[in-house]
Amino acid sequence: MGIRSGRIWRRIVNRGVTRFWAQAAREASETDLRTLKRRRTLARQLRSHLDSLISVADGRLALPIIGSNTFPKPHGTDWAWRPTVWRESLPSKGRVAVQSKEGLGEEVTLFHDCSISELTLRQLRNTRAKDLAPYGLRMDVFRFDGSFLSLVIDFPKDALHDLNRQYVIRMDTIVEMEKPLEIFARFNIKHGPNTEQIVRELPLHEEDIMVEFDLAYSKLNEKRIEKAWVDLIFEGPEMNQVILRDVTFSRRPRAEM
């Protein structure tokens, strides 16, 4: 009885709150300014909570499942990761006229040297049956007067745990484009004052878009690793729309020769 009465009481309270705000909205044009100012403050606070609830609910009630880190991994994988932009709903879904060093979330940052930015970034919901990632990232490029455009993805600290030259870093992605362009992936790993770089061109003509970075061919100082990141470099991006439906990373010890 206690649970049932509690539910009934909550429904009564909810109806009362709804009626209050409905009436307040109808009377807003005639309400005295002091009362209107107070109600506006309360409405903004309430809207913040409602927007947060709707964002979380939309994510949890849709597929693929929010937070999913599920994707195919090579045999021997000991670390795998899907960045937050492709895994979780972000409070800010997009940016327009994106300036250099701006991005979405804490891991993805856009770099360019345009004098006037006509670039947009937006997180979108993946709904296709074949999508494993809950979200995708769309980049629209209109007029582009710069010489470079890159999307930087910072690796988490756990990716560096026990990392050495016997490892292979793998990147898988799903890319959609309005028109063909070249995309390069550059793996960077900072060790002491030096930064090791390995560059691969994404095989966009293949069904499975994957590149690997073999650290055995690097001059990595394993004892001084500080951070790692990947640059996605877009060649000739003007007047194009690029959607990264998914981006995932994994690492595994390389096979002994």
Rank of each mutant, 00 (worst) to 15 (best):
P83A: 07
P83I: 00
P83Y: 00
T84P: 08
W86F: 12
R87M: 05
E88V: 12
S89D: 14
S89H: 12
L90P: 01
P91N: 10
P91A: 09
S92L: 15
R95I: 04
R95L: 15
R95Q: 10
R95Y: 09
V96M: 15
V96Y: 11
A97M: 13
V98Y: 07
Q99S: 11
Q99H: 11
S100N: 10
K101D: 13
K101V: 06
E106N: 04
E106Y: 08
E106S: 10
E107T: 06
E107C: 04
E107S: 09
V108Y: 07
V108A: 07
L110C: 06
L110H: 00
D113Y: 08
D113N: 12
D113V: 02
D113K: 06
S115F: 14
S115H: 14
I116G: 10
S117A: 15
E118T: 07
E118W: 11
E118K: 10
L119F: 07
L119V: 11
T120I: 05
T120H: 05
L121S: 01
R122D: 11
R122P: 03
R122Y: 12
R122C: 14
R125T: 03
R125S: 05
T127N: 08
T127V: 13
T127R: 09
A129W: 13
K130Y: 13
K130F: 08
D131T: 07
L132K: 02
P134W: 00
P134Q: 05
Y135E: 04
L137I: 05
M139R: 03
M139P: 03
M139N: 01
D140I: 04
V141M: 10
V141P: 03
R143D: 14
F144K: 02
D145H: 09
G146E: 08
G146K: 09
L149D: 02
L149Q: 00
L151K: 07
L151Y: 02
V152L: 14
V152T: 14
D154V: 09
D154E: 13
F155T: 00
F155W: 04
F155V: 00
P156A: 02
K157Q: 15
D158E: 10
D158T: 13
A159F: 11
A159T: 05
A159L: 10
A159H: 08
A159V: 02
L160C: 03
H161E: 14
H161R: 15
D162V: 12
D162K: 14
D162N: 14
N164K: 08
N164A: 08
Q166F: 12
Y167V: 01
